[in-house]
């Protein structure tokens, strides 16, 4: 047994022990670097691959755009080129659009978040109404059961990456409490879309009873419909479950 005895207040350890401790210190530094390497590279990739689905043409970064505004279940701007853009406010706040704008052609300004087919215009100021418009046609697609994750349309649109997943659920809950749009990021593409806007059975915003399921893998049942080029899923809270 090594019989050298080192007392902490001594200036330096005896030689053999000193060499051992130097090796431990070196091992610690290298070990930490190796762990950083192993864990950094093994970390979760930036969210599900919905970013690759249905992107279409890229939206401009900062933009003034116009289109028909619809407010339910959440504010959307249906652009003339057919591309729907969700509307949101600064931070974890909804767009706060006055009810009178529903169905109006309006001009909105702000900056764009985009990831795959999800695009959001984060408003600088309330949109300005120009004239009454025609909301996009609704096409019912029947009853569907879809598996995916309930999250907020802003983080999922790239405000955060990953922006989905269990570790993000409190953030998503907070965003939805702030009235940002609720979406379902589906596990597999539906009609070429990676996500759909979530509504209650009445077509209004996400029912409060679905709140505990935010951020989890859920299987939901309800009526699916096209509104222009946007999928809207009217989920039935009673039929929602974690698989």
């Amino acid at each position: 047994m090594n019989d050298e005895f080192f007392i902490g207040w001594q200036k330096r350890p005896p030689p053999r022990l000193g060499r051992f401790l130097a090796m431990v210190a070196g091992g610690l530094v290298l070990g930490m670097a190796a762990l950083g390497l192993a864990l950094g590279s093994a970390d979760e990739p930036g969210g599900p691959d919905f970013a690759a689905i249905g992107a279409g043409a890229a939206l401009p970064d900062t933009a003034e755009m116009s289109g028909v505004v619809t407010l339910l279940p959440y504010p959307v701007l249906h652009r003339a080129d057919g591309r729907p853009v969700l509307l949101g406010g600064d931070g974890k706040r909804g767009a706060g659009i006055p009810p009178g704008l529903d169905g109006q052609v309006a001009t909105a300004r702000g900056y764009v978040q985009q990831r795959g087919s999800i695009g959001m215009l984060v408003l600088d100021a309330p949109p300005v109404a120009e004239r009454p418009g025609t909301p996009p046609p609704v096409q019912a697609l029947g009853r569907w059961r879809i598996t995916g994750e309930i999250c907020d349309g802003k983080c999922a649109a790239g405000s955060m990456v990953a922006g989905t997943g269990l570790a993000h659920r409190a953030c998503a809950t907070l965003c939805l409490s702030g009235e940002l749009p609720a979406i379902l990021v589906s596990a597999a593409p539906v009609f070429g879309q990676s996500f759909m806007l979530l509504a209650g059975p009445d077509g209004g915003p996400l029912p409060e009873t679905l709140r505990p399921l935010i951020g989890l893998r859920v299987s939901m049942e309800g009526a699916l419909e096209w509104r222009g080029n946007l999928l809207v899923f009217r989920a039935d809270p009673a039929a929602a479950r974690t698989p």
Partner: peptide
Amino acid sequence: LYLWVFTWLARGGLD
């Protein structure tokens, strides 16, 4: 070193 290596490697996907 840990923080630097982790951050440098993970830069690709996540914010």
